[in-house]
């Protein structure tokens, strides 16, 4: 399988009808670490939650590891793990108890991996989770995500600003060793380019609920240098989503016209065109 994730026309609307994700066409190549760069509220976490089956798409669909996002989500979750930047774990449990609980959910669990990173991160097994610092909770969450040896790891903003909340180099080394070097797939959502730089060499941009392309990291870095802007998603994304680009979350927002697309755009163009040319049954009836 050369594609880990494939979505088409994925749209997620909130209760008020505003689109959190808007017509997302995404293809994540298998065996690589891909950065998902976008500012706060761009839809990164929502996309991850849809991939895990925590939320259902309003329209559109997709496959994750060849499994349908909506109907086979329980099987997806056995092979896909997820680590949040602020992990919500059971605070009253100890590190050991949390590991024991998580192990029982998965069909496969490599205790050697868990033990290795417990040593590397120097996590005390008997320590209650509520007494761990945020950095240590992130490390524990990563161990819980690595030990099932997932085919796909979803990392949600692993190194948020401020820097004191960043989990450190050994965190990123663990992802590289256990996921990237072993030919597995990782998607790293981030707000800053340097968060992605430590693990991924390719980047997809997400902005106002839409995704764009897979760009080599070097290309985006060069663009950042050229434009003399900070390596922040809020500054980078507008360069790749040229104006006029209306926020789809505004009620009267419309599809941008004559939108320029970067040359190396790898959106599933053919499928998108098919979807666009497909006649609307309501229109046909009228």
């Amino acid at each position: 399988m050369d594609t880990a994730v494939e979505t088409w026309g994925l749209t997620k609307k909130g209760r008020s009808g505003t689109a959190v994700l808007d017509n997302v066409y995404l293809r994540v190549p298998a065996g690589k670490a891909l950065g998902l760069l976008g500012p706060e509220g761009a839809g990164k976490t929502t996309l991850f939650k849809i991939l895990l089956g925590l939320q259902k798409p309003t329209t559109g669909g997709g496959f994750c590891l060849g499994l349908d996002l909506v109907t086979e989500s329980i099987f997806i979750r056995d092979r896909v793990t997820y680590a949040e930047n602020k992990p919500h774990l059971y605070e009253y449990l100890s590190v050991q108890e949390m590991i024991d609980l998580t192990r029982k959910f998965y069909s496969h669990w490599n205790s050697a991996v868990a033990d290795k990173y417990l040593d590397v991160f120097e996590l005390p097994l008997r320590q209650k989770i509520k007494k761990l610092s945020l950095r240590r909770k992130q490390m524990l969450a990563l161990i819980l995500a690595l030990a099932p040896e997932p085919d796909l790891l979803l990392l949600d903003e692993p190194a948020p600003s401020p820097a004191k909340e960043s989990p450190g180099q050994e965190f990123f080394d663990a992802v590289t060793t256990e996921i990237v070097n072993k030919g597995r797939t990782a998607v790293v959502a981030a707000r800053r380019l340097d968060e992605i730089k430590m693990m991924a060499s390719e980047v997809t941009l997400i902005y106002r609920g839409r995704t764009r392309g897979i760009f080599p990291l070097a290309e985006i870095e060069e663009k950042v240098k050229e434009e003399e802007i900070p390596s922040d998603a809020g500054q980078i994304c507008p360069l790749y989503f040229p104006e006029p680009f209306e926020d789809p979350r505004k009620p009267d927002a419309q599809e941008p016209k004559n939108e320029e697309k970067p040359e190396n755009l790898t959106i599933l163009k053919e499928e998108k065109e098919e979807a666009e040319t497909e006649p609307d049954p309501e229109e046909e009836n009228t």
Binding site: K49, L52, G53, L54, I74, F75, R77, D78, T81, Y82, E84, P87, H88, L89, Y90, E91, T102, F105, Y106, S107
Partner: peptide, 14 residues
């Protein structure tokens, strides 16, 4: 309470 619902539901359990 626990606020651990995303942890729980991201596991392979219906």
């Amino acid at each position: 309470g626990n606020n651990a619902v995303s942890y729980l539901l991201s596991k392979p359990v219906s």
